[in-house]
């Protein structure tokens, strides 16, 4: 949020309001000329961002498919895709799986672990702090396909986690088949915690030390200081971070696709994976598009809440 604030109002009234002859007539033309540099951005965004959004809404109302007769000329079918979607047992299951994935890995996992790490790092030794920072951030910086591949190896039946469990005498399950959701949730926590950790580490620096110190003098325990001082002070960071990690996790595809492929069956197909499977593996493009449209609406709803929260800072 620190990055959002440097809007400097004193810059704005400068040239824009400079009195010039014929100001009224040239005013509109001047602002047209001045907005010319926005054009390339507007064109790119309109074609490649707005385009897919419109195509998504329209496509979800047609019976388009990848092969067969409907591949060439699709026809308008109204809300058939949605009706079919809600009747298909895979869809409600996928919604539930997506919710579990969001809550467990983003809202609880990444945020709690990220905040915990940020707090613990303040009262730890410098070398330990550097080590945690390095490994946690590396998991986040790695390209997603590499992270997914490393997580696949880790949770594989013959992978690291079962070797470690064997060392202490436990025979581990076949994680990716028996516990696919738990595996992808843990993998996503591993992959994404760094972001929350960095956000919270920055936020904690803004907590005034006088308040926590005086509370300590008054005899408040560490837990009380956390609940009654630190958390309320950084609540804006918490809400922003919750929103952003939720949005990021909503569109996680590669990690799940590589680790389990949505399987076994559809036991770990969150909505992005199900959209891919329906469209490209079962050839039901309209079906996949309908799922994408629903995701888009959910994402848009979250964005609106987020933007409302940021409103005073956009000017």
């Amino acid at each position: 949020m620190a990055t959002l604030t440097p809007v400097r109002p004193e810059l704005e009234p400068g040239r824009g309001d400079a009195p010039r002859p014929g100001r009224k007539k040239t005013g509109t033309r001047r602002s047209l000329v001045r907005s010319v540099p926005l054009l390339p951005a507007i064109v790119l965004l309109a074609i490649f961002l707005l385009g897919p959004v419109i195509s998504s809404f329209y496509g979800s109302l047609t019976d388009a498919s990848l092969t067969g007769a409907t591949a060439q000329s699709s026809s308008f079918v109204g809300f058939d895709n949605y009706v079919e979607l809600f009747a298909d047992p895979d869809f409600p299951k996928s919604v539930v799986l997506t919710l579990i994935f969001l809550i467990a890995s983003a809202i609880v996992g990444q945020n709690v672990l990220g905040l915990g790490l940020a707090i613990l790092m303040r009262s730890s030794n410098k070398i330990v702090r550097a080590m945690v920072g390095t490994f946690v951030v590396t998991a986040w910086v790695l390209p997603e396909i590499v992270a997914a591949f490393a997580a696949y190896a880790f949770f594989n039946d013959t992978g690291t986690i079962n070797s470690v469990l064997a060392l202490i005498g436990i025979e581990g399950p076949n994680w990716l088949y028996a516990l696919p959701m738990l595996s992808v949730i843990l993998a996503n926590i591993w992959r994404g915690t760094a972001f929350s950790m960095l956000v919270y580490a920055a936020a904690l620096q803004d907590v005034p030390t006088e308040i926590t110190e005086s509370a300590e003098v008054d005899g408040a325990t560490g837990w009380q200081r956390l609940v009654y001082i630190t958390l309320p002070v950084i609540r804006r960071s918490i809400s922003t971070n919750l929103m952003l990690t939720t949005l990021q996790t909503l569109s996680v595809f590669t990690l799940i696709f590589v680790m389990t492929g949505g399987g076994p069956g559809t036991n770990s197909s969150t909505l992005p994976v199900l959209a891919y499977q329906e469209a490209f593996q079962f050839g039901k493009l309209g079906f996949g598009t309908a799922i994408a449209t629903i995701l888009l609406l959910v994402g848009a709803a979250f964005s609106l809440v987020y933007i409302r929260a940021l409103k005073p800072e956009v000017d």
């Binding site: 602002s31 959004v53 998504s56 909503l250 569109s251 493009l285 799922i291 994402g299 964005s303 933007i307």
Partner: peptide, 27 residues
Amino acid sequence: YRMRINKPFLYGVLFGTCLPITAMMVP
């Protein structure tokens, strides 16, 4: 510049940053 287009444009841009683009690969 202080232009009328700035505010809607920036809001649009902010909105765009939040869209789940990877979820949109089918359309």
